[in-house]
Design a protein around this nucleic acid. Structure first.
Lengths: 253, 253
DNA sequence: AACAAATGTGAGCACTGCTCTTGACTTCCC
DNA sequence: GGGAAGTCAAGAGCAGTGCTCACATTTGTT
């Protein structure tokens, strides 16, 4: 099994194939730049062709159509976000669940603020007429939620994730959904904590989206970093994460 | 002071002006339909002109350009959402804070699921190259957050909003922002509860956005209503809302 | 009825995604 | 080596877009 074992073709790549792959890489790179500058809906194959120094129809040799390029950029962005989140999380000791949670959230926010247009492609309103092919995007697209759930599940197994109370009981139809998810991901967390994890997940992206999309009015928050940190602490509490090791930091209710 | 006292022209509208206003209304209505069907980025003035039974350049007599139409649709959508939220909230007694909170969240979700493209225009990724004119959109655009803050502030003044603990203390720079907001909106809630309110606000839209934008994989949640209700209860708890009147419903910690 | 403002028309420019034909070039196989 | 097969870029062309402008028509008012 030499080379990359992805496709079922064990042949070594011919020079042609290598050149072709390199051109596609260039197209994706240029597309990423255009995406970052002009946004997803304004992504133009002709503009990419111009930057590539080639006539517009030539890029159709490498990329089937605009949707295909969008899909490539989607996967590219999901993976870059996933890489950064993974790196930020694994930079802290596995037992520091609260620290890892904070690192995960901060990494998402950092990437989103640095790449607002690409973040919008992933988590904003869907591009009209474009449907992401699930079989190619669900893998990269679920890396962050997998990381979060693995984190919370690890904390649960270590006895460091305790139900914070409040809210409501899990009703049977919801419990069925949660059971399916728990089995599918090999988790151990309880229904209530799993539901809390899902809420924390969407809340995290809600907070990031408001900031990235400029939904807060301009100048409303002069200290956005502090606001996000505060939110992150509240979300850790909402998820049920106990405060950092040692001292029973949990305030008296 | 007869008529509507909006513009500094107290004259009664001429038939011409009435016809003009009616045409603009028609354009907005048709644009709304196109928006709902094809999405914001695919909104086409030419298509609207066709539906209006007029040549494309004629609509430029009524709407300066595509951006102007987008702005009109933005305001229209914000107001429709605001109207529905206000109606849902005021349908319950003013003292039923938890009920009103639930009604607010459910109204937002209901409208978003019914009008996904318009919701995307308001809370999704910004349309590339389009900047909403703040002086015309901040009014309608802040109705929901005003309603939520008024609700939480009312609960606070009635002693029915108590700090749920957890999270972190408010650091000075954030406190300054919160103080400015509190003064600007005439609120009384504490810093921590105000910050919680902001988090609940973004979390609500995060949960709705994930559902509307199909960020949950297809078929992940067979019972989305129950999931949202569960989230809503958790968010009410996060905000510090005490459960409905009478019995000390608060579960033992 | 006459005038002037408001409104509608159609041509036109520059742009987009995408298709198709044509010609040139590279690679492989006999 | 020489042909065959495959690959690639070019350019024309189609249908659509936003938007402008000169011109024609309608319409309300004087």
């Amino acid at each position: 099994m030499p080379q990359t074992a992805s496709a079922p073709s064990p042949k070594p790549p011919t020079p042609r194939e290598r050149a072709r792959a390199r051109t596609i890489e260039d197209i994706v790179r240029l597309g990423r730049d255009h995406l970052a500058v002009h946004g997803a809906a304004a992504l133009s194959l002709r503009a990419v062709a111009r930057d590539l120094g080639v006539v517009s129809s030539a890029v159709y040799r490498y990329v089937e159509n605009r949707e295909e390029l969008l899909t490539l950029l989607l996967i590219d962005a999901y993976n870059e976000l996933g890489d950064e989140v993974d790196a930020a999380v694994s930079a802290l000791p596995a037992a520091d669940f609260a620290g890892r949670f904070s690192a995960l959230g901060s990494a998402v926010r950092r990437w989103a603020l640095r790449e607002p247009a690409r973040y919008g492609l992933l988590f904003g309103s869907p591009v009209p007429g474009y449907r992401a092919p699930a079989e190619r995007t669900t893998g990269p697209g679920t890396r962050v939620i997998y990381a979060l759930m693995a984190l919370l599940d690890g904390a649960y197994r270590a006895g460091r994730l305790v139900d914070p109370g409040g809210g409501a009981a899990v009703v049977p139809p919801l419990a069925a959904d949660l059971a399916r998810i728990r089995d599918g991901m090999g988790l151990a967390v309880s229904d209530r904590l799993l539901a809390r994890g899902a809420l924390v997940w969407t809340s995290l992206f809600g907070a990031v989206s408001f900031e990235v999309f400029g939904q807060y009015g301009a100048g409303t928050f002069a200290a956005p970093d502090e606001l996000f940190s505060h939110h992150l602490a509240a979300l850790a509490d909402l998820a049920g994460l106990c405060a950092a090791d040692g001292a029973g930091e949990r305030p008296a209710y």
